[in-house]
């Protein structure tokens, strides 16, 4: 099954980014394809590469980057990103800034869209 993920909250501040990640791992283990992960609202903050979380805690930014390296589309809404100082220069590796229309496109293509947020 093709599953799209919409993430609407930033990392650490809210559990949403963790829940989305755990769900994605479990879905892939069950043989599903994560079509894309789309960051919207404060979710775009998941794509900033300047953060340095404590070393004894999980690195949420790195998780997304690693997922991207494994072929999952990590997409960042351009309009939401511009409001929050997220741009190409500080983007985590393997993520792409894209238009909001991509989200609708994902919802059309995927069998499921699962939203994580506040």
């Amino acid at each position: 099954m093709k599953i799209g993920i919409l993430l609407k909250e930033g990392p650490y501040n809210h559990q949403a980014a963790d829940s989305a990640y755990q769900f994605i791992q479990a879905a892939r283990k069950r043989g599903h394809e994560i079509e894309s992960v789309f960051f919207y609202n404060d979710g775009v903050n998941n794509a900033a590469n300047k953060a340095e979380p404590p070393q004894d805690d999980r690195n949420i930014y790195q998780r997304w980057s690693d997922l991207g390296a494994e072929g999952v589309n990590i997409l960042v809404c351009v309009a939401a990103a511009k409001r929050r100082s997220i741009n190409e220069e500080i983007l985590i590796e393997n993520a792409t800034i894209t238009g909001l229309g991509q989200l609708t496109d994902i919802a059309i293509r995927a069998d499921r869209l699962v939203t994580f947020g506040d």
Partner: peptide, 15 residues
Amino acid sequence: YEGLEMVLISAAFDQ
């Protein structure tokens, strides 16, 4: 506000 932007963009997809 951002939800409304989402609605407007998606309207172009004839859904």
